[in-house]
Design a protein around this nucleic acid. Structure first.
Length: 542
RNA sequence: GGGGCGGUAGCUCAGCUGGUUAGAGCAGCGGACUCAUAAUCCGUCGGUCCCGGGUUCAAGUCCCGGUCGCCCUACCA
């Protein structure tokens, strides 16, 4: 687990037409925390994210805005999606766009490969098409018409007649892989996690797989099907391939082999694409399947799934403008069991910011450093003989380090934080019991004072190392204040308590300053939309 | 219609294969302390474990029924 092995992790790629909300940021942060953790463990880590830019919807909005689809995508990537990564401080190693040449070229290679191997056939798709919806409807989406349309099926949404259309399509023989997939799920219980996600996928596949239409000819904004340029590749088929085209599939075997297979973290709404279609595609192409697919839960606002249409969508910057990116990252990682749905509320966010970050961790850093400055002129003292309590702190450092690392291996980010926070709480309690401010008044207790402060400083440095993946800005400041060697992100997280430094501390500003008046403003104003349905500002597309 | 998940203190949630007085954090209340971001530490209040049956020496924990919420999936006419 710390042998420099490869760790390749991905986020889903953003559909550029969406408006960034905290759900997108949540996924990014989770993946980023895992990636940072692995980097600090010495693993050869690679974090990929990017954008999904093809498809009819994008073509349509681009046209409506009077620009080409590529121009439209360029604009959204630059104004919305790359800024989102900045907003929540994502340290990605690559950013792939499905319009990148490297992607298009190698996605075509992949497709041609499947075609040559006989996994693709020509079929005909017949279905009812609703012009209003601009999509094929299932018969269950249709209702009997009334009035002038009596007797014919109409779209349940538009109440207008649908057209029966035939379209030639290329189909991927996905049905042939059902047994192989089930065997895969069976043989590797961790392939799909958490358990609830795994069960759902298994029961879905057991109920039978149908073949997948993978091309469209009614519009042309997509990757051309290599043997038939009148067709473009179905957007999901195209999008999934980003995970391999980004690391050299088709043209750089060495790089590809050194990174693949990946850990895919996705929202549970797109789990099936990743846990069924994607592995089937890879099996067909004789490419190893992913290491793991993890489906996380949804963010609930006011008890409902957060959504733009319900006006509960929240822009990440609404949170980070007030609380900062560290608090955003910490809050969502700590408050929500990764894998389950989680409730978001401004009240909970500001409560946790105050009690856990400001009063718990931030204040601990302040008081320890202040005492070293005050009682030892900023020189970190050397510990003398250790008391039972001192030893207990050291034991907790080791226990937290191990427990957190083990939790990260299970992608239980929230548990990792819980484990680390035991050290925060114990250190605060330790100081209260040892009362270094009292020891300082008695010269005869000098050695004891120094031992206590040395122990506290050591614990604080351990926290800086352990929390660096989650709150990188605060821990960098803390690291500097502690006189830590090099940068904190280079410190081995699996040996967090073995950190070294110059032996001097520097003054430290409050890591998480209290947010007094602004808390009320933040809690009151942005919370309003969920209750009173005030529209959330959407800065980009109409 | 089938299938799955969930309904535990004011809030957010733990409670594995059933076993002593049902737990945590936050909020509330009381106290201690002063190094620190009026922060920290200690104590304390607080629950018909959705409802009704059943199995058992014993059920939040298993079974049946009901109810509410969510998710997946499928429709007969």
């Amino acid at each position: 687990m710390s042998d420099g092995s490869s760790f390749y992790i991905t986020t889903p790629i953003f559909y550029v037409n969406d408006v960034p909300h905290i759900g997108h940021a949540y996924t990014e942060v989770a993946v980023d925390v895992l990636a940072r953790w692995h980097r600090q463990r010495g693993d050869d880590t690679w974090l990929l994210t990017g954008t999904d830019e093809h498809g009819q919807k994008i073509l349509r909005t681009a046209t409506a805005n009077g620009v080409s689809p590529k121009e439209w995508a360029d604009r959204l990537v630059e104004t919305a999606w790359k800024p989102l990564l900045e907003t929540v401080n994502i340290a990605n190693d690559d950013f792939i766009r499905t319009t990148d040449e490297r992607h298009e070229r190698n996605a075509q290679k992949f497709l041609q490969h499947l075609y040559d191997a006989g996994h693709i056939y020509t079929g005909e798709y017949e279905g009812y098409y609703c012009v209003g919806c601009e999509e094929y409807k299932q018969t269950t989406d249709l209702v009997d018409g009334t009035g002038e349309y009596a007797g014919q099926p109409v779209c349940a949404i538009h109440s207008k007649p649908v057209e029966l259309l035939h379209e030639k399509n290329y189909f991927f023989r996905m049905s042939a892989f059902a047994d192989e997939l089930l065997a895969l799920y069976e043989a590797n219980p961790n392939f799909i996690q958490p358990e609830s996600a795994r069960n759902e996928v298994i029961s879905f596949v057991k109920s039978g797989l149908s073949d997948l239409s993978i091309s469209r000819s009614s519009f042309d904004w997509g990757i051309k099907v290599p043997w038939d340029e009148t067709h473009v590749v179905y957007v999901w088929f195209d999008a999934l391939l980003n995970y391999i085209t980004a690391i050299g599939y088709g043209e750089d075997e060495d790089t590809f082999n050194s990174r693949w297979p990946a850990t895919h973290v996705v929202g549970k709404d797109i789990l099936r694409f990743h846990a069924v279609i994607w592995p089937a595609m890879l099996l067909a192409a004789s490419v190893p399947v992913p290491k793991q697919i993890f489906g996380h839960g949804w963010l609930l606002v006011g008890g409902e799934k957060m959504s733009k249409s319900k006006l509960t969508g929240i822009a990440p910057s609404q949170i980070t403008d007030t609380f900062g990116s560290d608090a955003f990252r910490y809050y969502f990682m700590r408050a929500i069991s990764f894998g389950q749905d989680g409730s978001f509320s401004w009240e909970d966010l500001s409560a946790r910011y105050q009690s856990e970050l400001a009063n718990g961790f931030g204040n601990l850093a302040s008081r320890v450093i202040a005492m070293v400055v005050r009682y030892c002129d900023g020189v970190i003292p050397t510990a003398g003989p250790l008391s039972e309590r001192d030893a207990a702190i050291h034991a907790t450092e080791l226990r937290a380090t191990d427990a957190a690392g083990e939790a990260i291996d299970r992608l239980a980010i929230h548990e990792a934080l819980t484990a680390v926070w035991e050290l925060v709480d114990e250190l605060n309690g330790y100081l209260t019991l040892e009362e270094p401010w009292s020891l300082a008044k008695d010269p005869a207790k000098r050695e004891r004072l120094e031992t206590v402060l040395a122990t506290a400083v050591r614990g604080l440095g351990t926290l800086a190392v352990l929390l660096s993946p989650v709150v990188p800005l605060a821990t960098a400041k803390l690291w500097t204040a502690l006189g830590g060697t090099g940068v904190v992100t280079d410190q081995r997280i699996d040996q967090a308590s073995e950190w070294t430094g110059s032996g001097r501390v520097a003054p430290l500003e409050a890591l998480f300053p209290r947010i007094e008046a602004t808390v009320e403003a933040a809690a009151a104003v942005p919370a309003a939309p969920a209750v009173t349905a005030v529209p959330v500002t959407e800065p980009h597309n109409a």
